[in-house]
Amino acid sequence: MLSKQELSNTSSLSPDYISQQVKQAILIVYGLDHPVPDSLADSALMSGFGFNDYQWIELAFSLTKIIRNYNPDQSVTAPDLENLVTVRDCIDLVIQKSGI
């Protein structure tokens, strides 16, 4: 979980901050109740999480929430999910749709 200290140290418009948010969203959907974004490598394969369909839908909702903080008209659609091979792909998708 991002602490208040970390939040105040990071610009909410920076790709690094979005990267932390995305990793946190992935880890929460994975089931961790105290996720540590830094513990998740950008290169980690999404297939390694073994997500079922419910988890994919929930992840799409979580990523959409992050995007809408910056760009209320955008969302993650089902076709977007097919290109998410690594964690980095998720981060890039959110940055691209956020328009940062």
Partner: peptide
Amino acid sequence: TLFRDGKRLNWNTNNFRLNN
């Protein structure tokens, strides 16, 4: 069915214990 994550008891996703 129901889905719950980010809590001590989750449904349809993993529950981690013993330092994961």
